[in-house]
Design a protein around this nucleic acid. Structure first.
Length: 861
RNA sequence: GCGAGAGUGGCGAAACUGGCAGACGCGCUGGACUUAGGAUCCAGUGGGCCCAAAGCCCUUGGGGGUUCAACUCCCCCCUCUCGCACCA
């Protein structure tokens, strides 16, 4: 059966070779043309590409090629996120060095990507495990260190026992490792942090200034940053004038309803409060129990709150009442001050705990009529609240804070959920952190002229835990950059998310040797105009990259505030309702697919089957449909190639004209009149027959639809369906009687239609269209042609079909001239044979005429 | 619990600011061409009433509402997906 198909293998190999050897997609800065930076998230070189890659790169290439044809100077690069654990794990399992494993995988995957025929500028390929790459990251690390944006401290961190390394908060998903799904534990360990919290407010503020990002991604980032405004203040410990308990609340207005207070079990004040040895023993037992719980257990749904009442009491400064003090597992040491005032009347968690322990509940907000709930968090007027009584909640918050400030007890306070980014990894295959520990000078950054600190090649990878670099004497033992004495190198490596936080900047000038990137190049190309990638990075990579860009801006290196102007989050590729996985046996291998159907078909189907942001349910029959369509185009074009080659043009693009160099209209599909210079030109056919005119309008309507779908909202699937409709119309046009319109017109129209199909379809399925374009006698690449424009004059209709309704139900249709007078349309509608029977015995109450659309006759009996 | 998104034929999906629901594709049915068809081309294909046609009725998760007109706007409810989750 494959003999029935067009020879896609030969064609695809041919054009991939041609595009590469002619460096067709190589770009340079060109200030005279508008730029478009199109970027897909670069892959981790795992060894083979999967269908998710096919989908994301098909989308990226479609946009890149389309923008080329629209006259943009398009930067479309590719590279490799090459550091990471899988390489190291492969080394441990198979004894192959991570570098060898990684570079072999890169070679494999590059070959696979080349078979997809994507318009990358391969001269800009970047590989992050290359010392020429991470050198600059090390330099920026030192700059960040100087500004306090990188720091080292001991803290309780997330530890993946399987990966044997620390994880950042963003890399823990529901208590499990983002990479290997192992349950995460806690560890107290020294490590390096990036001070992303210093940018919390700015990162949050810009969430409202990136209209090109999907709302759900922005929401996830906002939630992750988790800003909450409130107050921090002290509760004196009763009978212990030297001790106070600092608490954070978002509801200072409810302070009069405070009936107890709670400390996190790990809170340092607990020790100072314990004087009785028996109590100390009980509390220690409780703390040990809580500590034993895993993150998963502690955050399990509907878990009862566990707490222990201390002998000590604290004083509510608002009313002087002495209230009980608890340690309880529902208060977290990692948020706020690790201690809370409990207001069971207005907080559901406090309510549940108070009920459990028989604690009093005071309501401080008037409940609405008929309220029968538990804790009340709604609006209302303050009651039982001393000087706050009668105020609204908002006003009471303000006055409570004013009072705290006057009394010297506390202040207004903003807290964020966002934690600093822990970047230390106790693993080998990553960029070395460029610092040295000297017995005399302490921690000292490596001298800039000594960068990069190169990752040594000869290393034992046992997988037994501990930084492998610590075992490499030649690496560890060094001299202090300051005093020249004996010193030790840092043996942790950086989180691989650091490399991916700036690769898009390196692409701007990948071979630049005097810095991270050439300033002029970054100024020209940045920001990325369209970024495309999976939703799994909604917080992780996308938040880190935003942060890192702002750091680089503040270091004076880039001018942009944000790296990515617009983001397209493409959905997953699933099959039979489930994510593709080996264990489910529902994996589609891109190589098989390309071998059986060709890259053009694989790409076309992945763009056609679903809108890009939705999950794509892979369907083998659907792929055959895409293949069938390309074959249909192939056969038709070749059958008529001879006729087209000798046809006159009705098309301004006819003949070999150079691509446009004038800046196109970035706003989109405004039609340049495509036959403005065709009048009276020899070799140009004029369409006179009405059938020809109708068909020509179909061609131009398709141009308008496809352009609109691409410009407006990434409606790739409907763009393809519009092209399919045009091809169907083309078959129908061709099948009609030959003599119904002049031969010259017929040939000219076939030519315009066929050339339009190829131009519109090109960015979706580039090889077959490029081949057919050449078969039509063109000597220049299809992708150097301007994108076709719909001719406004051709789109004009003389007549429209108007729907006739009686009482909202369709009863007939009417053809009238465009913009016919309403009164005339109404008259024709009421006289219509299909309409009249429905008016028998009824009175016309009203006639609604929507110009060029419909007439609705409203009746009553 | 909080937040975001989504519910439309047998399936993937269309329908721009309210104006012919189901474009396009898959699948299915019938026909043509064929030694053959799992190639290709043509026609049909939401459900129901009807021998059939013309025609009529019903149909966008459920229930209300606004409107001449609702997949689209408003209110209530149900289901699913994703994210965060004892964040004070």
């Amino acid at each position: 059966m494959s003999s029935e198909r067009y020879p896609f293998s030969e064609i695809e190999a041919k054009w991939q070779g041609t595009w590469e050897s002619s460096k067709q997609f190589r770009v340079d800065q060109d200030p005279s043309r508008p730029k478009f930076y199109c970027l897909e998230m670069f892959p981790y070189p795992s060894g083979r590409i999967h269908m998710g890659h096919v989908r994301v790169y098909a989308i990226g290439d479609l946009l890149a090629r389309y923008k080329w044809m629209r006259g943009f100077n398009v930067l479309h690069p590719m590279g490799w996120d090459a550091f990471g654990l899988p390489a190291e794990n492969a080394a441990i399992e198979h004894g192959v060095h991570p570098a060898i494993w990684t570079y072999e995988n890169i070679d494999n995957m590059r070959a696979q990507l080349r078979k997809m025929g994507i318009s990358y500028d391969w001269d800009r390929e970047v590989t992050t495990c290359d010392p020429d790459y991470y050198k600059w990251e090390q330099l920026i690390f030192i700059r960040m260190l100087e500004r306090g944006l990188a720091y080292r401290r001991r803290s309780t961190v997330n530890w993946c026992p399987s990966c044997q390394t620390v994880l950042a908060n963003e890399q823990v998903e529901a208590g499990r490792c983002w990479r290997c799904d192992s349950e995460v534990t806690k560890r107290d360990i020294d490590g390096w942090f990036f001070k992303i919290t210093a940018y919390a407010e700015e990162l949050l503020a810009w969430c409202d200034r990136l209209p090109g990002w999907p709302e759900r991604v922005m929401t996830m980032q906002r939630n992750w940053i988790g800003k909450s405004e409130g107050a921090e203040f002290d509760l004196p410990v009763a009978g212990r004038p030297e001790l106070t308990l600092r608490i954070f609340t978002t509801r200072p207005d409810t302070a009069f309803g405070m009936t107890y207070a709670v400390l996190a079990p790990e809170h340092p004040l607990v020790d100072a409060l314990l004087t009785d040895p028996a109590e100390r023993a009980t509390v220690e037992r409780f703390r040990a129990e809580v500590a034993r719980q895993s993150e998963l257990e502690r955050t399990a749904e509907d878990r009862p709150k566990r707490g222990l009442r201390l002998q000590a009491q604290v004083v509510n400064p608002f009313n002087g009442a002495a209230i009980p003090l608890f340690v309880a597992d529902y208060v977290l040491m990692t948020y706020g001050t690790g201690a809370i005032m409990a207001v069971p009347g207005e907080d559901q968690r406090d309510w549940a705990f108070a009920r459990q322990h028989g604690l009093p509940i005071i309501e401080t907000v008037k409940r609405p009529e008929g309220w029968s709930g538990e804790a009340y968090t709604g609006d209302g007027v303050k009651i039982n609240s001393g000087f706050l009584d009668g105020l609204t909640i908002i006003e009471a918050k303000r006055q409570a804070i004013d009072w705290l400030v006057q009394q010297g007890l506390g202040t207004a306070k903003i807290n964020y959920r966002l934690r600093d980014w822990g970047i230390s990894r106790q693993r080998y295959w990553g960029a070395p952190i460029p610092v040295v520990y000297c017995p005399v000078d302490g921690m000292v950054p490596e001298k800039e002229e000594h960068l990069p600190v190169v990752l040594p090649q000869d290393v034992q990878l046992s997988g037994k835990g501990g930084s492998p670099l610590a075992e490499v004497a030649s690496f560890v033992n060094t001299t202090c950059p300051k005093c020249g004495g004996r010193a030790r190198r840092e043996t942790d490596t950086m989180d691989t998310f650091v490399e991916s936080s700036w690769y898009f900047l390196r692409y701007c000038s990948p071979h630049y040797e005097r810095g991270m990137f050439e300033p002029a190049a970054a100024d020209y190309w940045m920001p990325v105009d369209q970024y495309i990638g999976g939703i799994e990075h909604a917080v992780l990579h996308l938040l880190y990259a935003r942060f890192y860009t702002k750091v680089l801006r503040d270091l004076g290196l880039v001018k942009v505030d944000e790296p990515f102007q617009a983001l397209l989050s493409q959905g997953m590729v699933i099959k039979d309702g489930a994510k593709m996985s080996k264990s489910k046996g529902n994996v589609v291998d891109p190589d098989d697919l390309i071998r059986t159907f060709g890259a053009d078909t694989a790409r076309l189907f992945s763009l056609f089957a679903a809108p890009p942001e939705k999950d794509l349910d892979w369907n083998d029959h659907g792929v055959e449909g895409a293949s069938r369509f390309l074959n249909r185009v192939w056969r038709f074009v070749l059958q008529h190639a001879e006729e087209v080659r000798t046809a006159l043009s009705v098309y301004v693009g006819g003949g070999e004209t150079p691509p446009p160099t004038a800046p196109p209209d970035r706003a989109g599909a405004t039609a340049r009149s495509s036959n403005s210079d065709s009048g009276g030109r020899s070799g140009v056919a004029t369409i006179r027959s009405s059938e020809g005119k109708v068909f020509r309008r179909t061609i131009h309507e398709t141009i308008a639809r496809v352009t609109d779908d691409l410009e407006r909202d990434f409606h790739f699937n409907t763009a393809i369906s519009a092209i399919m409709e045009l091809v169907n119309a083309l078959y129908a046009f061709e099948a009609g009687p030959r003599d119904r319109l002049p031969a010259g017109e017929r040939a000219a129209l076939l030519r315009e239609a066929i050339e339009t199909v190829l131009l519109l379809l090109g960015p979706f399925s580039p090889h077959v269209t490029e081949e057919l374009w050449q078969q039509l006698g063109h000597t220049e690449s299809l992708f150097k042609r301007p994108w076709p424009t719909a001719d406004a004059a051709v789109l004009v209709r003389q007549e429209v079909t108007v729907v006739l309704q009686v009482d909202g139900k369709v009863r007939g249709r009417l053809t009238v001239e465009v913009d016919a007078a309403e009164a005339r349309v109404q008259e024709l509608a009421l006289a219509d044979d299909k309409v009249r029977p429905w008016l028998q015995g009824r009175t016309i109450a009203r006639v609604v005429v929507v110009p060029n659309r419909l007439v609705n006759v409203v009746t009553r009996s």
